[in-house]
């Protein structure tokens, strides 16, 4: 499927820092802020932990997008 198809559900892998972005995602939950369900968070202790190889690995394995947040 592609981006032109309205039913397309992208596979987005996010690396989220435990102390800010992951906590922020928790806060979004506490406030019941709604967002698309296509994103999957991988908790890392710090965005500095994200090795470029993880990003490449995700794309190689078929991820449509990678978000590194910290």
């Amino acid at each position: 499927m592609s981006i032109d198809n309205p039913n397309w559900e992208p596979k987005i892998v996010a690396f989220a820092c435990n102390w800010c972005s992951y906590a922020g995602a928790d806060l979004a939950g506490l406030n019941r802020l709604q967002y698309p369900a296509d994103i999957r968070l991988i908790r890392v202790p710090c965005s500095g932990r994200v090795d470029p190889q993880f990003v490449l690995r995700a794309f190689h394995q078929g991820a449509d997008g990678v978000l590194v947040s910290g």
Partner: peptide, 27 residues
């Protein structure tokens, strides 16, 4: 696995939320 703050509380579509939960459990 965080299926509350980062799943059930932020998504309304049951099918999508359930699939996300399964994905996160597999992870």
């Amino acid at each position: 696995v965080n299926i509350r703050e980062q799943d059930s509380w932020v998504h309304a579509d049951k099918e999508q939320a359930t699939r996300k939960a399964s994905d996160l459990v597999r992870m």
